[in-house]
Every structure is written in structure tokens, then in C-alpha cells.
């Protein structure tokens, strides 16, 4: 189920990227590629499972839960990168505080 959930997340994010969020600034393509990368890797894992005589998909509740955790982890990484890159310059005031020269501080006083 982990593979199915990640593949589903990959398809949904691709559609969102195509129709709504193809702007490079918000780094949405990173999330899309991340899910596709993981999906491809799990597909390979699935085929090797078949070779070992195991099923291609693990349909247990544990694996389903893992799938949701994986999707959340992907979202968390994307959110972290987005906030770090700060495309809308929301955290400019923080950067400004670091760049303040002694003259600026005196002026503020």
C-alpha cells in the first residue's frame, strides 16, 4: 500500500503542478519529483519481492500507515525547503536584522 499511496501522491502533485503550481519559485516540482523518485524505487522493490516469491504489494494496515507517513514526510521536507528559500521574502525582516550595520542601529536609536 505504501507504493500505491506514494504513486497516488505523485499523480496528484503532478496534476497540481501542471494546472496550478508550475511556478518555479514555490519549488513544487521538487515535491513532485521526490514522490516519483520514491515510487520508481518501490516499483523495483516490488518486482524483486515477486522474484523472492512475495507479493508485489503489501496490503497490511501497517504498510498503509507507513504510506501516509511517507507522504507527510515528503510534504514536511518541501515545506522546510520552501520556508528556507522564502520566495515571497516573508522573512526579509530577519535577514535585515542580520545585515544591520552599526550606522543603521545608531539611526534607529
Amino acid at each position: 500500500m505504501c507504493l500505491v499511496i506514494t504513486a497516488f501522491a505523485a499523480v496528484i502533485t503532478t496534476l497540481i503542478w501542471y494546472f496550478k503550481a508550475h511556478n518555479e519559485n514555490i519549488k513544487f516540482s521538487m515535491l513532485v519529483l521526490m514522490y516519483w523518485g520514491a515510487t520508481l524505487m518501490w516499483v523495483v522493490d516490488g518486482f524483486f519481492s515477486i522474484a523472492k516469491g512475495e507479493p508485489f504489494l503489501d496490503l497490511s494496515i501497517n504498510d498503509t500507515l507507513l504510506g501516509f507517513v511517507i507522504v507527510l514526510c515528503g510534504l514536511a521536507v518541501w515545506l522546510f525547503v520552501l520556508l528556507y528559500k522564502d520566495p515571497k521574502n516573508v522573512f526579509d525582516f530577519l535577514k535585515g536584522a542580520h545585515k544591520q550595520t552599526p550606522t543603521d542601529i545608531n539611526k534607529n536609536k
Binding site: L33, M34, G37, M41, L66, V69, G74
Partner: peptide, 20 residues
């Protein structure tokens, strides 16, 4: 960059699975 994102992202998510 597309390749790096797929590789880093995929291995990160697989690492989560291995931790699990």
C-alpha cells in the same frame, strides 16, 4: 536538478521506510 531531486527525494523516503 530533476535527477538529483528524484534521487535525493526517493532515497530519503525509502530511508523513512527503513527506519519504520
Amino acid at each position: 536538478g530533476w535527477l538529483t531531486k528524484m534521487l535525493w527525494g526517493g532515497s530519503f523516503l525509502l530511508a523513512i521506510e527503513h527506519i519504520w
